[in-house]
Design a protein around this nucleic acid. Structure first.
Length: 433
RNA sequence: GGAGUUGUAGCGAAGUUGGUUAUCGCGCCGGCCUGUCAAGCCGGAGAUCGCGGGUUCGAUCCCCGUCAACUCCGCCA
């Protein structure tokens, strides 16, 4: 069967293409999305990965919804058909029957289905076109991210998710049995992407899972998420990273508007104006606290979720875009490897529509500075293992950032829970499907 | 780890100031209808009202416990 792998089987025409076959007999395959019976005539709506096809039948349709069929028939143009074309049935072959006790109707608006039912029955809920749109967009987000960085001289890497020792701190990690010892699931590819900068590759990106053993239960957390990571050498400060992320956001929003209108429409969503990405405000952590305190009429000591929502409101009102960079985070709020700037750091967050989607910053690259810093965080060189040797033998100034893929997807489409943007989400309770 | 809200049919919800056959929409089963667009119309099946205990003549409703889900906080992407 070699050669057929990525093509359709011999005769199959996809839903999006049937208009090209007017007057011809074709074969289409897919799932029964819906049936409308009107006595002597029935409309069978067949669904494939590209859309819906109306099949006109002269007889009753006895198969249940979600049965998998191949239909052979003639394509006819008809103003009354959705999309202008329909197929008049000649031959119908059942490829796989579907039981009639679906957990919920696939052809219904998913807003009317609870998140628990959606996630418990993933193989069914993903058939819903609106839910499928989430992951069509997500797949493209991954592509745009990768394309942007490849175009800018970055190399894609895949690092190990099994970490022997040397955790970054600031979060809990999962322990895993590893032969006769224990390892940890990577909370980020942080050390490995820095290793690659030091190795001479200079600019790298990685798109892969990250694991956080945090016992939280919120609409913005999952314990396994896809991290889109970047690290680049020869920068001066976090401002270089902020600039490249502005360009990245502009590129991604432009591509989405060009290629993903259908997915946006499915959710009634729109991206921020790509042209405004150059003007995303950059404010310091102190300024952000001040702005939020004034607006909320109470003293704010931290950029908590409420403050994140408020600061985006502010950015929208003042700059017409609901994205805002917050830089110069205090040292104690950042990991040990963050490059200091007085009592502050060369680091930043990007908040999008009220939710933090990125943390980034310059890293300490001088061996001496790192040695001096470790004790302040209660750490030793031994604990960090191989990490330390990255710097001992010449590592350029560098920094990077990461975007949470599910959070980005969620905020673009305006979904209320990040779990809806993970195919098979893992949270504190959920480990299946 | 803390706080709050909610558990009623396969799914989404209403309701009972404690009372006899627990309601609606979707889905499911059967029937009618030749142009439907979430088709329409008629009929039907399907619920020990999350679970356990208590109060009461009587509990789906009140009380206690328990389990689960969701939302929020700390922390984070």
């Amino acid at each position: 069967m070699s050669g057929l792998g990525y093509r359709e089987t011999k005769m199959r025409v996809l839903a999006k293409d049937i208009g090209q076959y007017e007057g011809k007999e074709i074969s289409v395959s897919g799932w029964i999305h819906r049936v409308r019976e009107l006595g002597q005539i029935s409309f069978l709506i067949l669904r494939d990965r590209t859309g819906l096809i109306q099949v006109v039948c002269d007889e009753k349709v006895s198969e249940t919804n979600e049965t998998v069929l191949t239909i052979i028939g003639e394509v006819q143009a008809n103003e009354k058909a959705p999309g202008g074309y329909e197929i008049h049935l000649k031959e119908k072959t059942v490829l796989a029957e579907a039981a009639s006790d679906l957990p919920f109707p696939v052809n219904q608006d998913p807003e009317k289905i609870g998140i628990e039912a959606i996630l418990d029955n993933r193989s069914i809920s993903l058939r819903n076109p609106k839910i499928k749109a989430i992951f069509t967009l997500q797949s493209d987000l991954i592509r745009y991210f990768g394309d942007f960085y490849r175009q800018n001289g970055f190399t894609e890497i895949k690092s190990s998710k099994l970490i022997g020792h040397g955790t970054e701190g600031g979060t809990n990690v999962f322990e895993v049995e590893y032969f006769d010892t224990k390892v940890f699931l990577a909370q980020s590819p942080q050390f490995y992407k820095q290793t690659m900068v030091s190795s001479g590759m200079e600019r790298v990106f990685e798109i892969s899972h990250a694991y956080r053993a945090e016992k939280h239960e919120t609409a913005r957390h999952i314990n396994e998420y896809v991290s889109m990571d970047v690290e680049m050498g020869f920068i001066e400060s976090e401002m270089d990273l902020i600039q490249i992320q502005k360009d990245l956001m502009k590129y991604m929003f432009t591509q989405i508007r060009k290629n993903n209108q259908a997915e946006l429409d499915a959710w009634g969503a729109t991206t921020p104006d790509p042209e405004l990405c150059d003007k995303i405000p950059v404010i310091s952590h102190d300024e952000a606290k001040k702005i939020v305190s004034e607006r909320l009429g109470k003293r704010v000591f931290d950029i908590n979720p409420e403050a994140e929502r408020e600061i985006c409101q502010w950015a929208m009102e003042e700059h017409g875009i609901d994205l805002v960079f917050i830089n110069e985070f205090p040292r104690k709020k950042r990991p040990f490897y963050t490059y200091p700037k007085g009592l502050k750091t060369m680091s930043y967050d990007l908040v999008f529509r009220g939710l933090e989607i990125t943390t980034g910053g310059r890293r300490i690259n001088q061996y001496r500075m790192l040695q001096e810093t470790l004790p302040k965080f209660g750490m030793t060189e031994e604990e960090l293992g191989d990490y330390i040797s990255i710097f001992k033998y010449g590592c350029p100034p560098h920094g990077g950032f990461a975007i949470g893929l599910e959070r980005l997807t969620q905020k673009i489409l305006g979904l209320s829970n990040v779990k809806e943007c993970s195919l098979f989400p893992r949270d504190r309770k959920r480990i299946t499907p």
